[in-house]
Write a protein that binds this DNA or RNA. Structure first.
Length: 198
DNA sequence: CACTAGATTTTCT
DNA sequence: GAAAATCTAGTGG
């Protein structure tokens, strides 16, 4: 296993589509306590631009809820959806420019027992193959909204220095009614932990 | 396997 | 009041 070194701020301070594609294959890390750490390989994400993207929460300008998307890159954006699930994003683009990468699925690597307890299932394939599922498994709630993911804290992205080559598939994003003209959902081809195949 | 409905809460109109 | 970047259980083939 790699040492868990966070990706730097400059990684996120770029256009959101590049960050979304480049972040595939790296590690999502959640430190629960001193003896429990949960790690998953990022296998599926979506890009939300903000300015020209009607599906983005930042499309209609700054509000108290979305102002974090206009802030510093590398910060976590967590919000509640459908009254019962949390969704995780990381802010991209330089400060002042909106953009975020939405995490849809990861491949469980470490802390699998912890995740199975939280998800109340022992089906590895269905543990973290969806945005709401992975936040339950990783115990990600609104308390982590605003967490700096470039620091080795409770929640961050760690570099996978042994990242192998893989093909990236791009499709329209899921669960939205506008912005379908952009193929901004990206996932690792042939990975079993992607939420929805073709 | 495919499809449908229900759960439940924050935010903006 | 309606919609929302979802998931699960239930029904029917």
């Amino acid at each position: 296993m790699n040492k868990l070194i966070p990706l730097s701020r400059s990684f996120y301070e770029r256009d959101v589509v590049s960050v979304a594609k480049d972040i595939l294959g790296h590690f999502l890390v959640r430190k629960i306590d001193s003896s429990t750490i949960v790690v998953g390989k990022i296998v599926e994400v979506e890009a939300y631009n903000g300015k020209d993207d009607p599906a983005s929460h930042a499309y209609k300008g700054v509000t108290p809820k979305n102002k974090i998307i206009f802030g510093k890159p590398g910060i976590a954006y967590v919000y509640m959806i459908y009254g019962m699930y949390y969704c995780l994003n990381v802010i991209t683009e330089p400060e002042g420019i909106p953009g975020s990468v939405f995490f849809r699925a990861v491949e469980p690597l470490q802390g699998i027992k912890y995740m199975m307890q939280r998800r109340k299932t022992d089906n590895l394939l269905k543990l973290t193959n969806g945005p709401g599922k992975l936040t339950i498994a990783f115990n990600i709630t609104e308390k982590l909204n605003g967490t700096d993911m470039t620091k080795s804290g409770p929640l961050f992205i760690a570099k996978n220095k042994d990242k192998n080559f893989f093909e990236i598939i791009s499709t329209p994003r899921i669960g939205i009614r506008v912005g379908l003209e952009y193929n901004w959902r990206f996932y690792i081809r042939d990975n079993a932990f992607v939420s929805k195949k073709k």
